[in-house]
Design a protein around this nucleic acid. Structure first.
Lengths: 141, 141
DNA sequence: TTAAATGCAAATCTTTTGCATGTGC
DNA sequence: GCACATGCAAAAGATTTGCATTTAA
């Protein structure tokens, strides 16, 4: 099973390989990320990380989350221009439905859409590096 | 023909209908928007609007662009978390390819993708209010 | 006339950064 | 030990807002 603990272990290994030092703060954030089932923003990450390391500063959260992003372990979203939200990257690629009423975020995945996107970029002479697809929705009555 | 001038006239009519007063500042911004072929940010809108009305303030640009958005005449984008960029809304629906090297933005449209998106939302029990599809790309060698 | 719009500057919010101090390796 | 990481507080950047003044209708 891929438990949060196992995930964290994998991330630690990756971080070391890339040359990052393993600090208490980074461990705290790795754990938070591994356990998160949602898309927390920096303030929320900070709050959750404090549980494991009560003196972690907000600046460190910013710096660490950027480092994890660079290391390919976290993705950043900014739904409709709001402040950045993050999620672990070791899931299958997926996109997001944002419920405009509740704020709830639902993940979905479609091979067909993915394929079309690549085709379109290709037709325009581009290679896709990454993409954002967000559906801002309302629950159907 | 749908000249910038004609577009501006239509926008003025719409604004009045919705109950907004027609001020020199709003005229200036409407003109800027109607003439823009790109996706200017607030600083750029301010710069361009100053040509028609040299004393328009940045606060008014912010307030007006939000008003135009509410009135359904302008859309806001925040490509990869950067500051907001705007475009007129009276074009056909389209999505964006963002060239990661040059910053250039290319518009494209695909009925197939659009249809798939609606289908997916529908399957999850949602109606799409608006959506955002952005492909961050690199020119193919 | 008068409610709405503007300009200005101050406030807010998010994110980044300089620097002195602490710490993994 | 030393380069890298952290905390703090200040800075930066984007956007919003309070308030006195101006202006469209």
């Amino acid at each position: 099973m891929n438990t949060p603990y196992r995930k964290t272990q994998q991330h630690v290994a990756t971080l070391q390989r890339v040359g990052f030092r393993i600090t208490a703060q980074r461990m705290a954030l790795l754990q938070v990320l591994a356990e998160a089932e949602d898309h927390p923003d920096v303030a929320e990450l900070h709050l959750r990380a404090r549980v494991a390391d009560p003196k972690i500063s907000i600046a460190t959260v910013y710096r660490t989350i950027s480092a994890l992003e660079q290391a390919g372990m976290s993705t950043r979203h900014s739904f409709d221009g709001a402040s950045a939200r993050f999620e672990r990257v070791d899931k299958l690629h997926h996109d997001h439905v944002v419920d405009r009423d509740s704020g709830e975020i639902v993940e979905f995945q479609s091979d067909r859409i993915e394929q079309l996107q690549t085709e379109i970029a290709s037709r325009l002479g581009y290679d896709v590096i990454h993409l954002r697809l967000e559906l801002y929705c309302r629950k159907r009555p």
